[in-house]
Amino acid sequence: MLDKIGIAKRIAKEVRDGYYVNLGIGIPTLVANYVDQNISVEFQSENGVLGMGAFPFEGEEDADIINAGKQTITTLPGASFFDSVTSFSMIRGQHVDLTILGAMEVSEGGDIANWKIPGKMVKGMGGAMDLVASAENIIVAMMHTNRTGASKLLKKCSLPLTGVGCVKKIVTNLAVIEVTNKGFKLLERAPGVSVQQIINATEGTLIVDEDIPEMII
């Protein structure tokens, strides 16, 4: 079974040379730490920066340079700053190659819910609806089940949707799963996790071929 860092490490392998990547808050943010050092990748943050670097050293932080999680950051050589309209032109116009974000629920049809629990939690969608409506390549990073043990990979989402039919791939603590037009397809098992465990933790339709390889991290 993977922890959050394990999920981030596995997703980092999906990042290819020449990609512009938007990372959501939470596990997705960690992905930047594990991308192959030998490839060229630029990270976009929707508040208006392309070419994000590491966090600043103490005392070098600048209140005017933050990421979408409102964390202080630095920029790399070649970085650029821009306004929100330009930022979402990059996103809506499909100039960003890969979007990685968290989710509360994903349906077997690729619907995603991650912004609201009616009556309990309403933080807002931020840029997530724009991202999922436009991105061609969306990977969801999340735990396979919620805190009560219920599956987050469902036939149909129960929470208000963020987008419909948009998720392509899901990396959880248990598995790597592709969203196909026939439902979830199991691609890889996490180390030490059996196919049966994944079947048990998945409420939606799960297509399981013979010989599901253990993922390499």
């Binding site: 730490n33 590491a54 966090f55 600043p56 050293f57 103490e58 070098e60 932080e61 209140a63 005017d64 933050i66 999680g69 409102k70 964390q71 202080t72 950051i73």
Partner: peptide
């Protein structure tokens, strides 16, 4: 004032 909402810094050990 330019208040910082989430001050995040790195150390040499935690890149």
């Amino acid at each position: 004032e330019k208040r910082i909402e989430q001050l995040t810094v790195r150390t040499d050990h935690n890149p």
